[in-house]
Write a protein that binds this DNA or RNA. Structure first.
Lengths: 273, 273
DNA sequence: ACAATAGTGTCTGTCAGACACTATGCC
DNA sequence: GGCATAGTGTCTGACAGACACTATTGT
């Protein structure tokens, strides 16, 4: 094969540089510069249903984060984001998807690069660079075990403070303003992601990744409210969101009140605001 | 010193884990996971004055990008962003600032992390991860040589196309939609940065990094127009920007028309819109 | 009947877009 | 004087915030 390319470049003329470049590459010593350890940490967001006692009331929605408890040093027993070392033969996205597949058994979800964290002492072992990703998913798309596992933490706001409360064990509470409450700099990563989400939700269609294919407008509004941390007015919300969705013709039922129309996302017609 | 920490942790109780963690760290083999080569590329934006023939007219403002021509393989002779390999002992920001100091002789400017690029074949030598940074500066803050050098390219829009035109040699034109027109994936990096800037300019104070300490409102408006690529209406622009600036009491002079009041940035009173 | 949510109509104040107008220095 | 820009006043239409109102189910 090499001969063919040689020939082609020679025939197309002015190929001296290309030949020279190839010989340079052949003799390149990749160890000239010291390499760095790189990991990926994945911040997985979803929305939790908090079922209330009253049969009539709708479940309360909260933003939630998927964490795992570390089984090894460093930071043994502390809660941390899912993550893993980057294999030099994989893309960062491939590494991240691999981690999600192994930990949660999911292989399709929204994933976007968040930020690259490189504080010198973020890992006590050595200098490790972490490229953080943010994932959004609907809890119903998960296999049963990953959905029920006690690894989801609800984001609750207490004045200035932002707390993570374990869904199954409400007594487990992590304070994001205390960097020590999570392993590594994962408290920072979560805050960065939360911030990114709050900004982007206003001018992108990110919210639709957090609901099912068919959803009621109230559900969708709850997602916006959970992310922004404030109540919205229904008429205004519907005015803005209506151009982005279309009715499926289906309705909810058995909810102890007027049924709600189900909508689906109607693609990227235009920007939100 | 180790004895003291040992003692302290033992006295404070429940310190078994800490002792265990330290012994783990002491024996940790950092070569367990294969490492990766990492570089930083810095996308430096500024605004260029394009002086017109008419003495009365104001200079036309364009966004501009700082590029260097590669002297070595790979991509010898192609234009590329300033950048360099990351020394494992430095922060990414430190590496980036070092590059800027060496290349442009500047050591204070706005710098923000842009994105981490990791396409497998972005560098023909091997897998190299690049953490891209975006820098904003005012051309007047540069030492004379870096200001005049023919390394600045103006961003000009030609319909859908985005072109880079060398300031000193207008015949040198690079087409950003053609990935091959710049070294590595630097065309992508520039487009990503341009996009980021266009988004953030609307809800942040980034624009002020591109003008001098004292500036006229028309200058500031020109910056917004250059970034957004469209004309704005002066009255509306002034309404929005006025709360963010304060008059210095100084005025421009000798410009062949009515003098213009000079303003300065009045800190982060609140968001823009 | 009634609790609880679904969904719509409409008023109002704010603000961006638009245009017209006045102000001022330098050749 | 007149060119070119600086800077302001004000009208208008669009639209977010706000509230009131009607609709519909399961117990």
């Amino acid at each position: 094969m090499a001969h063919v390319r040689d020939l082609v470049t020679r025939l197309t003329g002015g190929a001296d540089k290309e030949v020279e470049e190839r010989s340079f590459l052949d003799s390149y010593d990749s160890s000239v510069f010291e390499k760095v350890s790189v990991t990926t940490d994945i911040l997985v967001f979803s929305i939790s249903d908090i079922t209330t006692t009253n049969y009539r009331k709708l479940p309360e929605k909260k933003m939630s984060v998927y964490l795992t408890q570390r089984t090894q040093f460093p930071f043994k027993d502390k809660w941390s984001l899912a993550g893993g070392f980057v294999n030099p033969k994989e893309t960062l996205v491939e590494t991240a998807m691999g981690v999600l597949k192994r930990k949660m058994g999911i292989d399709e979800l929204y994933l976007e690069q968040l930020y690259t964290f490189d504080a010198p002492n973020r890992d006590p072992r050595m200098r490790i660079l972490s490229v953080a990703y943010m994932a959004l998913l609907n809890r119903k798309d998960l296999p049963e075990n990953a959905r029920q596992e006690s690894l989801w933490f609800n984001i609750i706001r207490d004045g200035e403070k932002i707390l993570l409360q374990n869904e199954c064990h409400p007594e487990i509470i992590l304070d994001l303003s205390d960097k020590q409450s999570l392993a590594f700099d994962h408290a920072d990563i979560i805050l960065t992601g939360l911030n990114r989400l709050q900004n982007k939700i206003e001018y992108t269609d990110l919210a639709f990744h957090l609901v099912s294919q068919e959803f009621t407008l109230t559900e969708l509004q709850n997602v916006y409210e959970a992310i922004l941390g404030k109540k919205l007015l229904a008429p205004a919300f519907r005015r803005v969101i209506k151009p982005l969705v279309e009715a499926t013709g289906n309705f909810t039922a058995g909810s102890g009140h007027r049924p709600s129309a189900l909508f689906r996302y109607k693609g990227a017609t235009s920007a939100l605001s």
